[in-house]
């Protein structure tokens, strides 16, 4: 019958469209990462480029509280100082220490978090242990630096900020994804 054929043609077209939209949902993932890359959003795992001759605002002090956490892995992780006071525009280096308290080799990745959120815009990191994964042998202890600068255009009402790192364990699954995104985003 004519209507029957016409109906199944429409149904097939719509089914194809449905599948296309399902795939489109997944295609949004690389698309999203591409947008972040092009617009320079979310580059947590890359060193920032510095402006030439940063101006140091010697009249102003900003206190930086250093925070360190581990999530689900048998490590100890702490900054060597609880906090530092710096001038905006000045280059600073702080040290963190991780120690593996277990008898196995563990891969970990640190993810930064800033408070207030606004700090992310004004914090320029030259060197960080969070740019790559850290591999710790059983009972290994390691000290690692973070080298950064707070831009002098940080709003004047902010006097204290917190920089926090959390270490996550990288499983075998996570590792490839981590490496990929480390290069990409």
């Amino acid at each position: 019958m004519n209507v029957v054929n016409a109906n199944s043609v429409v149904m097939k077209k719509l089914l194809v469209f449905t599948v296309v939209m399902f795939v489109f949902g997944f295609a949004l993932v690389p698309f999203y990462e591409k947008i972040c890359e092009v617009t320079g959003l979310n580059n947590l795992l890359q060193a920032d480029t510095l402006v030439e001759n940063p101006q140091v605002d010697t009249a102003r002090w900003v206190t930086i509280e250093l925070d360190a956490n581990v999530r689900g892995l048998p490590w100890q992780f702490k900054p060597l100082q609880r906090s530092v006071s710096v001038h905006p525009g000045e280059m600073v280096q702080v040290m963190y220490e991780i120690s593996n308290n277990s008898n196995r080799e563990i891969n970990g990745q640190a993810i930064p978090s800033y408070s207030p959120q606004l700090l992310a815009k004004h914090l320029k990191k030259l060197e960080c242990f969070c740019f790559s994964k850290q591999v710790l042998k059983p009972n290994e202890v390691r000290q690692m630096p973070v080298q950064f600068m707070i831009e002098s255009n940080l709003p004047a009402d902010i006097n204290t900020v917190t920089i926090s790192y959390t270490f996550f364990e990288l499983g075998t699954n996570n590792a490839a994804a981590m490496r990929d995104s480390g290069n990409r985003s």
Binding site: T166, N173, N174
Partner: peptide, 13 residues
């Protein structure tokens, strides 16, 4: 299944 589409620690968002 251990994918990391949305897991920040695994490179997701």
């Amino acid at each position: 299944f251990g994918t990391n589409f949305f897991n920040a620690a695994g490179g997701g968002d």
